[in-house]
Simulated scan of single mutants.
Amino acid sequence: MAAHPTDRLGFLLSLRGELAGARIRSALGVAGLPPRHAMTLTHLAPGPTSQRELAIVMRLDPSQLVAILNELEASGLAERRRDPADRRRHIVEITPAGSAALARVDDAVTQAERELFGDLTQAETALLRDLLNRVVVDPADHSCDAD
């Protein structure tokens, strides 16, 4: 007899992930940003970084990142400039408009998370975060990020 889909942890995580993803995408729509654009701004918020490092941290192909950055620049949310110390390198940073958009994203995502995780205690939320950070998605990558 086959197990019910919610008895299989992978199926349950996939189902809940799809539902959570849809809710977060809806929240991001409030700020008018696709998820990858919002994540890029989140990574840029702490301060300027090289385009290469940003691609590595975000685990994106550099050409994908270029497309995202082109759109963020066109919207005035991020800017790139040549590194004066190494002209081959691009430095990327969030603009004041990008910071304002990120604040809207944070507000919308906070509300979505309240709805998604409202029945969990703080301890349960912390445990869930820890457990999910330990899930190995790429077998070659055992360095689970705690972002």
Rank of each mutant, 00 (worst) to 15 (best):
H43M: 11
P62L: 01
T42R: 11
Q64H: 15
L41E: 00
A55D: 06
R59S: 02
Q64A: 03
S50C: 03
L54D: 07
V66D: 11
V57P: 14
S63M: 10
P46C: 01
P48S: 03
I68N: 06
R59H: 06
S63N: 10
L65R: 05
E71F: 10
P46A: 01
E73T: 03
P46G: 02
L44Q: 00
L72V: 02
R59G: 11
E71I: 15
I56P: 08
R59C: 03
L54T: 04
H43R: 12
R59K: 14
E73G: 05
L69W: 04
R52I: 13
P48L: 04
I68C: 14
D61I: 08
E71M: 13
V66I: 15
A45P: 14
L72R: 02
H43G: 02
T49G: 06
L65D: 00
L44T: 00
L54I: 03
P48T: 10
E71R: 13
M58C: 01
R52W: 13
L54K: 07
L41S: 00
A67L: 09
N70Y: 12
P62R: 07
A55E: 03
V66K: 12
D61R: 11
L69T: 01
S50R: 05
I56L: 13
E53N: 13
A45T: 10
A55N: 12
Q51Y: 09
A67C: 13
E71W: 14
E73K: 10
T49A: 03
S50A: 10
A45R: 10
T42E: 08
N70H: 11
T49P: 00
L60W: 06
I56M: 05
Q51W: 00
R59Y: 01
L60K: 03
P62I: 00
A67E: 07
G47Y: 09
V57L: 15
